[in-house]
């Protein structure tokens, strides 16, 4: 397994946000974490990338324990994280944002080629390379946040609600992009409140409820599951 959470717990000021969560992510495909608002999805991703400290348990990435490492050290091991709310650098240009994603890389020529790849994948970013990120629409900012993470050449990509706040056509475009990236061989952990989209894209799914995994299985099976249909798919 590429990534393993073993009985991982996170608490904010004594309040448990994640309770003994165990998950595995294989070296390919898409794993999704779905759940209601406040279920602990974001906390799970923040624990993986080192932004949240574990109260107990461990996280193993590519054979090494990474819990307790600083976030920049975890990024250096190849974990790319597109955070909730996109969090692009508003006062940096599109191109500066993308280059920031390549901060750790020294292969200058390959970085330049990857930059062109990202522009090829997101033509709207190419048109706006010299614009400040603050001037982009929500969908464009999401693409920039994804492009920035790709510039890291991630061995694992964490996506936190990439569809949040976007119009349905844009959500579809993001879904297509996620599938494409997965097609290039990058394993993805996709967090979504939009369970319909997530279960369509993913191979395997975990359901989080108030900090605990209550259900897991193949995405297709969960899509047919009665409880999931009622609780998350609006029918």
């Amino acid at each position: 397994m590429l990534l393993e959470l073993r009985e991982a717990s996170v608490a904010y000021n004594m309040v448990r946000a994640l309770h003994r969560v165990s998950m595995t992510v294989p070296p390919g495909g898409i794993v999704t974490i779905i759940g209601a608002n406040g279920a602990g999805k974001t906390t799970a991703l923040r624990a993986i990338s080192g932004l949240a400290r574990l109260a107990e348990g461990e996280i193993v990435f590519a054979g090494d324990r990474i819990d307790g490492l600083a976030p920049d050290r975890i990024a250096a091991r190849g974990v790319g994280h597109v955070p909730e709310g996109r969090r692009v650098f508003a006062d940096l240009t599109v191109e500066e944002n993308l280059r920031t994603g390549a901060f750790l890389r020294r292969d200058v020529d390959q970085v330049r080629r990857d930059l062109e790849d990202v522009y090829g994948r997101f033509p709207r970013l190419a048109e706006r390379r010299r614009q400040y990120a603050r001037t982009l629409s929500g969908g464009e900012q999401q693409m920039l946040a994804i492009g920035r993470a790709l510039m890291l050449r991630p061995r694992l990509l964490l996506l936190d609600e990439p569809s949040m706040g976007l119009a349905p056509v844009v959500v579809e475009e993001i879904a297509r992009i996620v599938r494409e990236i997965s097609g290039t061989g990058v394993p993805i952990v996709l967090v979504e409140q939009n369970a319909e989209m997530a279960l369509e894209l993913a191979d395997y799914a975990y359901v989080l409820e108030t900090g605990s995994v209550t259900l897991q299985g193949n995405a297709e099976e969960l899509h047919g599951n009665e409880h999931i249909r009622r609780a998350y798919l609006g029918g």
């Binding site: 990338s49 080192g50 932004l51 600083a70 976030p71 920049d72 990024a75 250096a76 790319g80 994280h81 955070p83 969090r87 692009v88 650098f89 508003a90 006062d91 940096l92 500066e96 280059r99 920031t100 994603g101 901060f103 750790l104 920035r148 993470a149 890291l152």
Partner: peptide, 18 residues
């Protein structure tokens, strides 16, 4: 760049390896 990024959003900067 790293400093400007950190000044705008330290967490997001850390996720880039800064």
């Amino acid at each position: 760049w790293a400093l400007r990024a950190s000044a705008q959003d330290p967490e997001a900067a850390a996720l880039q390896g800064i």
